[in-house]
């Protein structure tokens, strides 16, 4: 379980996260949604110890993230941030192999190779595995980074907008993959999503943030409702049930 208590983040004099307390139970897929500047990414990077907190604590299965050694946490929790611009010329396979670093410290075993192969296969990167990252399209590169996080094989997988730069087919593929990681491998997946319909169709639990605070949380049935979403995003929305999935319409206001 991920447990955050009284999390705050201050940049200079602005509070970007205000006293957020929440629990994310083990297993399943949790989406974090909310308008721009809601503090979604800040929350995710504080949970994953990338950004120091101004106040509060985060525990992963009872381990305080600020006190647990980094290499121990790296075996339990992986994080992929939104912007992964690297100037290094690495091959896809090299990058994915770095996901095994917490486990093998650089000496790759046969088991490591298996995890690497599996991650490359899952993200359909087989034909690109020996290409350099700078020779790939934005979407392929994004998938390579996700494959790296997958090969890290941690109980908790945190992804900040993994659908960025990805076309429809690969976005669906990515969400199915994350769903399978939760269902078949028992992983706890936490994703920041901008597309609320992906959040609606794939999540077990949705956390809605606004203005640096927790606005709503609950199951998709509780959150994907026109009153909740209209309030959250401050635009008119309507939610329709299509083929058993709750779909939010907001693209063009009905006159």
């Amino acid at each position: 379980m991920i447990e955050a208590r009284g999390l705050s983040k201050k940049y200079h004099d602005t509070l970007v996260l205000k006293d957020v307390s929440l629990k994310i139970s083990k297993g399943g897929l949790t989406s974090i949604i909310g308008p721009n500047g809601a503090g979604k990414s800040t929350l995710l990077s504080m949970i994953s110890r990338l950004t120091p907190m101004s106040a509060g604590t985060v525990e992963i299965d009872g381990l305080d993230v600020t006190r647990t050694p980094g290499h121990e946490l790296a075996k339990r929790l992986s994080i992929l941030r939104q912007h992964n611009e690297s100037t290094l010329r690495l091959t896809v396979r090299d990058l994915v192999a770095f996901g095994r670093f917490p486990h093998s410290r650089g000496r790759l075993t046969a088991e490591d190779q298996q995890h690497i192969d599996e991650a490359i296969h899952y993200l359909e990167l087989g034909e690109y595995q020996n290409r350099h990252l700078d020779e790939l399209s934005g979407g392929q590169r994004q998938r390579a980074y996700v494959a790296m996080v997958m090969s890290q094989n941690t109980d908790y997988v945190l992804l900040d907008e993994p659908l960025n730069n990805i076309d429809m087919r690969h976005a669906v593929g990515m969400m199915q993959l994350l769903r399978r990681a939760a269902d078949e491998k028992g992983k706890s997946v936490v994703v920041v999503l901008h597309d609320i319909n992906f959040a609606s169709c794939y999540s077990d639990h949705i956390i809605a943030m606004r203005g640096g605070q927790l606005a709503y949380q609950g199951t998709p049935e509780q959150i994907i409702r026109s009153d909740v979403l209209s309030d959250l995003y401050d635009i008119p929305t309507s939610v329709h049930e299509l083929n058993g999935q709750r779909i939010c319409m907001y693209f063009r206001e009905l006159i």
């Binding site: 990338l50 770095f98 670093f101």
Partner: peptide, 21 residues
């Protein structure tokens, strides 16, 4: 320490994620 320095070259967040100080 080659692998560790490659990780450093990938940036602070990347390094922290894989448990490199």
């Amino acid at each position: 320490l080659a692998d560790r320095f490659t990780v450093i070259g990938m940036g602070k967040d990347f390094a922290t994620n894989v448990g490199v100080n």
